[in-house]
Design a binder for these strands. Structure first.
Lengths: 195, 195
DNA sequence: TGTACATCAGTGAACGCGCGTTCACTGATGTAC
DNA sequence: TGTACATCAGTGAACGCGCGTTCACTGATGTAC
C-alpha cells in the first residue's frame, strides 16, 4: 500500500497519538516531536492543524472533556432511573475516568498549559460539568437555587467525588487502594453515598 | 558589608527562593538556574545541598507538607475543643492552605517529579495527613475501625475537603469563587459541614 | 474533458534557547597535634 | 598559640541535549473556465 503524501485524517491521528503519549509518559515531558514520530509524520506538520504547541494541548484537553462527558452520559443512561442511582452511577463513572486516565485527568484539572478560554475547550468542559452537576443536584433532592447563590449540597457532593478521584489517583487513601477491584468499587460507592 | 564566601544558611535560602519561584511562575517552568540567581549564588551550588534537581523538588515538597502540618496544627489548637469545631477548623485551614499556595499544593498532590519515597518527605506528609485524618475521624464521631478496613465516613470527609480545595483553586465552582472573602468563607464551611 | 492555477498538507534542514550536569578550581573553615 | 592539612562550600566555563519554531520547499488536491 502506497503511503499517501496527504494523510487525510492527520488531525485525529495526532490527537490520538498525543493521548497515548500523555498517558504513557506524562504531561511534564510531552513533546511534539515524539508525538509526530508516533504518527509517522514530520514534527512540523502540527502547525497546519493546531498552530503551536499550546494549541495541541488545548485540543487534547477538549478531547478529554468530550470523553469524560460521554462516559458520564453512558453511566447516566444505564442507571435505573432513580435520581439517587443516577448520582451513584455518575459519581462512579467520574472516579473511574480519573483512575483510568490519570494523566488526562491531571491535564484537565491541574495543568496551566491548555488555553481554557478557547471556545471549543470551554464548550466541552461546560457540557461535561453541567450534566454531571445536574445529576448531583437531582440525587441530593435539592431544588435548583436562584442563579446567584451557592447550591451547597450539590457542591458538597461534587467536591467529595472530585476529591475521592484525586486522592485515589495520587496514591493517597491507601486503605482503599489496597482492596481488590470489586471491593474497591464497593468502597467508592460507600464513600460517595455516606450521609 | 562584605559578602562572605560561605553563605552559612544556603540550604534554607535556596528552599525559600524555590518556594517563591514556584508560586510566582509555576512548577512547569521551575529552573535551578533562576532559583540560584534569586539567591545570589551560582547555579552549581545546589549540588552540595540537594544532589540533583529532583532532590531540590523533593525537599521543597517536604517543606510544603511541613507548612501544611503547621497550619493544621495551629487551626486545631485555636478551635474551641469540640470535635466538630476541630473538623471545621482543620478543613478550613486545609482549603485555605491550598488557595494561598496553589502551586505548592499542586506540587504536593499532583506532580510526578518529587521522590515520594524519600524518607524525609514521607515523614512530613504522613505527619500532616495522620493528624488531619484524626481530626476528621473525631469530628465524624466514627470510632477507629480495625486496621484492615476502610473508615468510610472519615475518607468521605477528607475527600470532600480535598476536592473542594482543588475545585476552587483550579477555578471551577464559579458560584463560590464569585463571593466576597467573608461570604466565601461561610460557603466553604457550609460545604464542609453539610450532611 | 482539459488545463491553469490557487490552496492545502506535509517535508526536512537549520536555528537559538534554556536547561541540568560535569569539571577542575579556589576560598573558607575545622581540627589534630 | 601556631601550623599543617583535610574537608566543606561555592565558582564559572563548557558541554550536550531536546525542545518548539522558522523557513523555503514540494507534492497533492480542488476548482474555475
Amino acid at each position: 500500500m502506497k503511503k499517501a503524501y496527504h494523510h487525510g485524517n492527520l488531525r485525529e491521528t495526532l490527537l490520538e497519538q498525543a493521548r497515548i503519549e500523555l498517558e504513557e509518559r506524562g504531561i511534564e515531558v510531552l513533546s511534539l516531536r515524539r508525538i509526530a514520530q508516533r504518527a509517522g509524520v514530520s514534527h512540523t506538520a502540527f502547525a497546519h492543524h493546531f498552530g503551536d504547541a499550546r494549541g495541541l494541548l488545548t485540543a487534547l484537553t477538549a478531547y478529554g472533556y468530550e470523553r469524560l462527558g460521554q462516559n458520564l452520559g453512558r453511566a447516566r443512561a444505564e442507571a435505573v432511573p432513580h435520581d439517587q442511582d443516577r448520582l451513584v452511577a455518575s459519581g462512579l463513572a467520574y472516579v473511574e475516568f480519573a483512575l483510568g486516565h490519570p494523566q488526562m485527568f491531571t491535564l484537565m484539572f491541574a495543568s496551566k498549559y491548555p488555553n481554557f478560554s478557547d471556545p471549543a475547550l470551554d464548550k466541552a468542559s461546560m457540557a461535561a460539568f453541567s450534566s454531571f452537576i445536574e445529576d448531583v443536584r437531582r440525587g441530593r433532592k435539592a431544588s435548583k437555587p436562584d442563579e446567584e447563590s451557592v447550591d451547597v449540597p450539590a457542591m458538597a457532593s461534587w467536591a467529595r467525588i472530585h476529591g475521592l478521584a484525586l486522592l485515589l489517583l495520587t496514591g493517597r487513601m491507601r486503605s482503599v487502594l489496597a482492596l481488590d477491584p470489586d471491593r474497591r468499587r464497593e468502597a467508592i460507592i460507600d464513600i460517595i453515598t455516606v450521609g
